[in-house]
Design a protein around this nucleic acid. Sequence first.
DNA 1: CTGAAAGCGCTTACAG
DNA 2: CTGAAAGCGCTTACAG
Lengths: 333, 333
Amino acid sequence: MTTIYDIAKKTGFSITTVSRALNNYTDVSPKTKKLILEAVEDMHYYPNSVARTLSTKKSWALGIIFVEDLGIGMKHPFFNSVIEGFKKSVEQKGYDLIFLNRYVGGEKMTYLDHALHRGVDGIAVVSSNYDDVEVEKIIGSSLPNVIIDSHTSKSNVVYSDNMRGSELAVDYLYSLGHRNIAHISGHSKTFVGLERLRGFKSAVEKYQLHNSSIAEGGLFSVDGGYQAMKTLLQLENRPTAIFAAGDNLAIGAMKAIKDAGLNVPDDFSIIGFDDIELSGQISPSLTTIKQDMDKIGEQAAELLLQQINHKTDPTISIVPVELIKRETTKAIK
Amino acid sequence: MTTIYDIAKKTGFSITTVSRALNNYTDVSPKTKKLILEAVEDMHYYPNSVARTLSTKKSWALGIIFVEDLGIGMKHPFFNSVIEGFKKSVEQKGYDLIFLNRYVGGEKMTYLDHALHRGVDGIAVVSSNYDDVEVEKIIGSSLPNVIIDSHTSKSNVVYSDNMRGSELAVDYLYSLGHRNIAHISGHSKTFVGLERLRGFKSAVEKYQLHNSSIAEGGLFSVDGGYQAMKTLLQLENRPTAIFAAGDNLAIGAMKAIKDAGLNVPDDFSIIGFDDIELSGQISPSLTTIKQDMDKIGEQAAELLLQQINHKTDPTISIVPVELIKRETTKAIK
DNA sequence: CTGAAAGCGCTTACAG
DNA sequence: CTGAAAGCGCTTACAG
């Protein structure tokens, strides 16, 4: 590895001057700078970021944490898309992304301790879990952070307009003539599950739909939706439409309906929540509330970098959602 | 931030002794060690990994690189699952994962330069691209590395048994009575696309299926499969079965068949390659060649860590595939 | 069993 | 415009 000393030796300047030239200080003569930059090029030198970090206290690395105690897992397309958006945004500003976990060298530490140990400049937390001790610690720390898909007034948060999403779904079903609308809810320990449920209840209230029932769908899995739908199918007063808190739940419900020998959208209209890639590709394609994952990632990046650079106050960013009409919804006579 | 000096001051020992106690050196008296560890606990001290890295030349960080010039993108479920498996394996050994890109602080550098700059201990490259200058540089470097989904004899490589997968697919279709089998191939610039095509050709040769045709499916997208299938549908001598080089391609093909008013599996049997989550959930569910993504990730981790620790010779790890029989395949009379 | 000192590769006051 | 020196927070010969 070539170091700053090699460049100094080759050019005859001190490492101080080399460092200055490299960091675009103005008080280096153009001639000197040119010489140094040429040597840097020749010797294929890149400053060691570890040494730089040690002396500047700035790592140009951001930590990303998945709190997945509930076991939803990072394989869910939502998370990946959000991360992708986040990554793109921060890379542009020169930051690298580092996955933080709870184990370092075989020893268990908290996510926060790990972040501190690694010296990241900030943390993005993806936490579906409503109240988590680990996340509380991060929020309460002085390390800049942003929380995605959960809520707190003490830090930066980014999530979809879940309430509005539920409202859009019920509005649409109502406009199609449905009066008995059921909800397959997300896990009650998740922030988004609760919010979507709350939105559903408020919409149902608005239209005075006293028949509406709710089935617990659990952790946003296909199987959870399947089971919930089986419960709904046994109801005496069956719904004609189902709004599920996630696309996976909706897909599971569709399967249950099919297995019962019934049809979507003839017997049941269905709306999901997410708009994962799959939803447009299945048959019938799924009407759903689209979350703008890229935007969520970008927003998270923006809030986090803002805090890192200007120490702004905690900011809440609620990202708009959109109703995507497809084939699983149908007007009833 | 509390440092090793704080612990030294509090306990009255030198930083040398504190460091020794922390790193489990044997030549520290049990009593001293206990005192120091207590202080560490009390003061909530965690060693600064940046400083440690600077003095030991070991970062306990691994770089991960996506070469996605072709634009397949990291959102493809295959990559995410592989990364997940890789991540789990290396975390257990105390390594963190850091995403490497080509931009650092706004300036463009190669992936290798970035890795060197960051001081990672090794690199995992996910590269569908067959020959890539950047990847060549990494392979040719002295930094330990492993290449996933591409081939070279000069470094560690891990990929599925693509040839065997194609063979399994054709064998099965043949056993169902199909004699006119088409292949929707992956992009000819991708290693896996070429391998699966090669496997297909060899199987077709084995059974002397002179009718078999091939349609280019491009970059493993649903739309690519759709377009390829449209071509196949126009053939005078239509195939009765299609083996697609990816599940997305197969799903696209299914859509094209449906749009043409035809049916799977009645009019066409279809087999994909991947076994992405979606494949089991669509209707009809997709018969496919399952890749063991977790295993690929684990193998990559193992080879990389081996090279880091013992400087082993370049190793090729070919991960077995498996035929998953589902609803898109059917015997013909 | 313990400590003083040098060194890892940078940056940044301070001095000239 | 340039350089000598100190410092970032650790680890590791070397000495005792």
